[in-house]
């Protein structure tokens, strides 16, 4: 299917993008009752997901407002408080290769570096990656008017659901599409958002994402007239280590069927003092494995504990007819990533 014809404009500042009359991609994809289709103005960064949606006929904007000319929005730099600021237009390749990220936030470097293909990583931005829409094949099919597109049902719950959620899947069984998000939530990242009036808000990424029970038609709390300008990583505590791994059908260039990020803080004697364990491709939003996190605190990490932690991560899982196989994969992957983050894998 060919893309619809559209106008092109270029924002020179984030405020100009926010004031461009753009709506969110989620709103632009919903049917307008009684109205003509294709009237939306939509913001564009790398454009990877937008082009996919437009080629499928799921999105037909009147105008794209390109954000790529905004000066400095692709910069990655250390802030005065020791945190890292990753401009929203930084490419996944920049994120994967940046020495400060490799040094301070290995989980993010590994998640970004393993995403998609080199060709896509050079173009896709971290901001666009976090805002991309889910990859559920029913959601991506023009023939299926699912809940998330304003229709009446989730086709995945009783359909072909082998790549779908094993947690929190009662309303809509998509998995969150961003692998970088798995690592960023584990790292306690915030997302910086500006509006046309110049107001800035910086919610925790974990709280920015929206579960289907709250609103099934959007994956995040981005509002009309807002532009994502950066991802902010807090300064890590002294003895912090992290890791991310994925398991896919194919070794390269495939969506993960499971991915896991672990961030560990440890005492001088090596005991875990704080753990973040987040599961990706597991639920509609990145899923914290809280039972696992709790059982790690105060312990020395070894293989036996890692295996127990992997099984604990499955607590509250509700697999669907075709995705029970994900449970042992997550259990094994949590153990493996935990050992890797602890320097034993």
């Amino acid at each position: 299917m060919a893309m619809n014809r559209f106008e092109w404009a270029s924002a020179r500042t984030a405020a100009e993008g926010a004031a461009s009359g753009a709506t969110t991609v989620a709103d632009a994809m919903l049917p307008v009752p009684g109205g003509p289709p294709g009237q939306a103005v939509v913001l564009k960064a790398g454009g990877i997901d937008l082009l996919d949606l437009m080629k499928e006929g799921l999105l037909a904007p009147r105008r794209l407002v390109d954000l790529r000319a905004i000066a400095g929005l692709d910069a990655i730099a250390q802030e005065s408080d020791g945190g890292l600021r990753i401009g929203a237009l930084a490419s996944l390749q920049q994120v994967a290769e940046h020495p400060l990220i490799a040094d301070r936030a290995r989980a993010l470097a590994e998640a970004a570096g393993g995403s998609a293909s080199p060709q896509i990583r050079h173009v896709a931005t971290i901001g666009g990656n976090l805002l991309q829409r889910p990859r559920c094949w029913y959601f991506r099919s023009i023939a299926h008017r699912c809940l998330r597109k304003g229709g009446g049902k989730c086709f995945a719950v009783h359909g072909e659901n082998q790549y779908h959620a094993i947690f929190a899947n009662e309303v809509c069984a998509v998995v969150h599409p961003s692998t970088a998000a798995t690592a960023l939530v584990a790292l306690g990242a915030r997302i910086e958002i500006v509006n046309a009036g110049g107001d800035v808000r910086r919610p925790l990424l974990d709280e920015f994402f929206v579960a289907p029970e709250t609103d099934v038609q959007r994956e995040n709390d981005l509002k009309e007239g807002e532009v994502v300008t950066a991802v902010l990583l807090p300064a890590p505590a002294a003895a912090t280590t992290s890791a991310h791994m994925r398991q896919s059908d194919k070794q390269a260039f495939d969506w993960p069927i499971a991915d896991v990020a672990v961030v560990l803080e440890r005492d001088a004697d090596g005991r875990c003092s704080k753990a973040s364990v987040v599961l990706g491709a597991a639920a509609p939003v990145p899923r914290r494995a809280r039972a696992t996190e709790e059982m790690l605190v105060g312990e020395m990490i070894d293989e036996k504990l890692a295996r127990e932690a992997g099984h604990a991560a499955l607590e509250a899982s509700t697999p669907l007819a075709r995705n029970h196989y994900k449970q042992p994969i997550f259990a094994a992957l949590v153990a493996r990533v935990l050992l890797r983050a602890a320097g034993q894998g």
Binding site: W8, G47, I48, L51, R68, P118, Q119, H122, V123
Partner: peptide, 13 residues
């Protein structure tokens, strides 16, 4: 010099 997917990029980009 950097590989990109030309099907997934607009010519105006």
């Amino acid at each position: 010099g950097v590989p990109v997917a030309s099907c997934s990029m607009l010519a105006l980009d």
